[in-house]
C-alpha cells in the first residue's frame, strides 16, 4: 500500500519523516538557496518579509481547506453548482483565495470516478491543498495513471467495479483539479465540520474515497 508510512525515528507532527535540514552538513544546494535568496533581496527583487510571508502562506494551506469546500458542496446544492461551474470563484467565496491558480472541480458519482495526475511535471492544486505528496511527483504515478489507472488505484486500496467509468485528468496546462468525492452513506445527520473530517487529501486527488463516519 503506497500509504503505509515507513517507521522513522524522527517524525513530524503529521507523521512524516523530516528531510535532514537544519542540523546536518550544509549541502551545495542549500548554499545556493541561501545565496540566491540574499542576492534577490540585495538586488531589490524581493524583500525578506515577502519570502517569509510566502513560506507562511504555504504552511497555512492544507487539505483541510479542500475538505471544507467539499463538505460545503455536499450540503449546499447551490454552492455545489457554483463550484462545478467555476472552482476558483467558489473557493474564494469561502475565503480560500487560490489565485492565480485556476481550479476545476470534478465530481464523483455512482457511475463515475475521477483521478488527477500531471504526466509532464507535478501540477497540483497547491493553492488550495498545499504542496503535493512525494508519490504524486513520482515517475510511477506520473507514468502509469494515464495508462492503467485502475491498477494504480488498486495499489491505493481502491478497487473499482467495471461499471464505474474512470476519468483521468492530466493537468497539462493552466488548470488545476480537485475531485469532489461521493458523500458517504449514513452521513445525513452530520454537519459541515463533521463531514469535512471525512474528506481525505487522497479522496480529493482521486486515489481514495471519503471516509465512512
Amino acid at each position: 500500500m503506497p500509504h503505509d508510512h515507513h517507521h522513522h525515528d524522527h517524525l513530524s507532527p503529521s507523521g512524516h519523516p523530516y528531510r535532514p535540514d537544519q542540523d546536518t552538513g550544509l549541502s551545495y544546494w542549500q548554499v545556493m538557496e541561501i545565496a540566491i535568496r540574499e542576492l534577490m533581496i540585495e538586488k531589490g527583487v524581493v524583500t525578506a518579509a515577502e519570502v517569509a510571508a510566502q513560506v507562511e502562506a504555504m504552511d497555512a494551506r492544507s487539505p483541510a481547506q479542500g475538505a471544507a469546500v467539499v463538505a460545503r458542496a455536499w450540503t449546499d446544492p447551490d454552492f455545489r453548482a457554483r463550484l462545478l461551474e467555476d472552482g476558483s470563484a467558489a473557493c474564494a467565496e469561502m475565503g480560500f483565495d487560490v489565485k492565480p491558480m485556476r481550479l476545476i472541480a470534478v465530481e464523483n458519482d455512482a457511475a463515475t470516478h475521477n483521478v488527477v495526475v500531471c504526466t509532464l511535471c507535478s501540477c497540483y492544486p497547491r493553492n488550495l491543498l498545499g504542496l503535493p505528496p512525494d508519490w504524486y511527483k513520482s515517475r510511477a504515478y506520473r507514468s502509469r495513471t494515464v495508462r492503467e489507472p485502475r491498477t494504480v488505484l488498486a495499489e491505493f486500496g481502491l478497487n473499482l467495479p467495471d461499471d464505474v467509468t474512470v476519468r483521468v485528468h492530466d493537468s497539462t496546462a493552466d488548470m488545476r483539479y480537485i475531485v469532489v468525492p461521493s458523500r458517504p452513506a449514513g452521513t445525513e445527520g452530520l454537519d459541515e465540520a463533521a463531514l469535512a473530517a471525512l474528506v481525505t487529501r487522497d479522496s480529493m486527488i482521486g486515489v481514495g474515497v471519503a471516509r465512512e463516519p
Binding site: 503506497p2 503505509d4 508510512h5 515507513h6 519523516p17 523530516y18 504515478y141 495499489e155
Partner: peptide, 9 residues
C-alpha cells in the same frame, strides 16, 4: 507507486 512522504524542510 512509492508510499513514502516527507514534510518539506
Amino acid at each position: 507507486v512509492p508510499g513514502e512522504e516527507h514534510d518539506f524542510a
